[in-house]
């Protein structure tokens, strides 16, 4: 018994990663049941991600002491470290556009999809669609508007998972309500 307990302590992080993966899986399963079209499920996941991102960025800033980003390269670095922090993976940043306003995150092992197989009739489902939402929400809170979408997805037979992030514009400080 003590051996097992020992082992449990060591793999504590790994285990809660299982829990995370499974919880996310159950959530997606529930959404599929609740909504009629896969399109709606994708939309819902994105919306949830967005709401999480809005809050998560605060946690991230508090924990990392990071300062304002001056260009998208820095932003990409930060996103990379956030992935390390919250999901325990380090995606690589690649495929910069000429104007440096668009790049890809390549994720080899997506923890969200660890035990997942997509059945054929679910080919439209963007299983990890919560991630683009999180990134969009988080960046919006630091006044960067981006567009995020999946280019490739391991679950759909691609060799890697690729998230494309495109800078749209810098958000200006909003006027207080009723002053315009």
């Amino acid at each position: 018994m003590s051996r097992q307990t020992q082992k449990n302590v060591e793999s504590k992080n790994k285990v809660s990663c299982d829990l995370f993966t499974l919880t996310y899986g159950s959530l997606v399963a529930q959404l599929i049941k609740d909504y009629d079209t896969t399109e709606d499920v994708n939309k819902q996941l994105d919306r949830m991600g967005y709401n999480i991102g809005l809050r998560l960025v605060e946690d991230f800033l508090a924990k990392t002491n990071s300062s304002r980003c001056h260009d998208m390269k820095e932003t990409a670095d930060k996103i990379q470290s956030a992935f390390k922090m919250y999901l325990g993976i380090s995606p690589s940043v690649a495929n910069w556009s000429a104007a440096n306003d668009e790049f890809s995150l390549l994720i080899d092992s997506n923890p969200l999809t660890e035990y997942v197989e997509l059945p054929d009739h679910m080919s439209q489902l963007k299983y990890s669609n919560i991630l683009p939402g999180v990134i969009r929400g988080a960046l919006e809170m630091v006044q960067i508007e981006v567009q995020v979408w999946f280019v490739q997805d391991c679950l759909k037979g691609d060799s890697t998972t690729e998230l494309r992030i495109k800078f749209i514009r810098k958000l200006e400080d909003a006027l207080p309500a009723g002053e315009d």
């Binding site: 829990l19 499974l22 919880t23 899986g25 159950s26 959530l27 399963a29 529930q30 609740d34 949830m48 709401n51 999480i52 809050r55 998560l56």
Partner: peptide, 26 residues
Amino acid sequence: ELLAQNSDNDSKELCVSRLEHIGYNT
């Protein structure tokens, strides 16, 4: 966080039972 997300939109009882169900599967 997921909890808060999910409870936004539905009538109370329905969303509690959904959350319970998600928990059960997990």
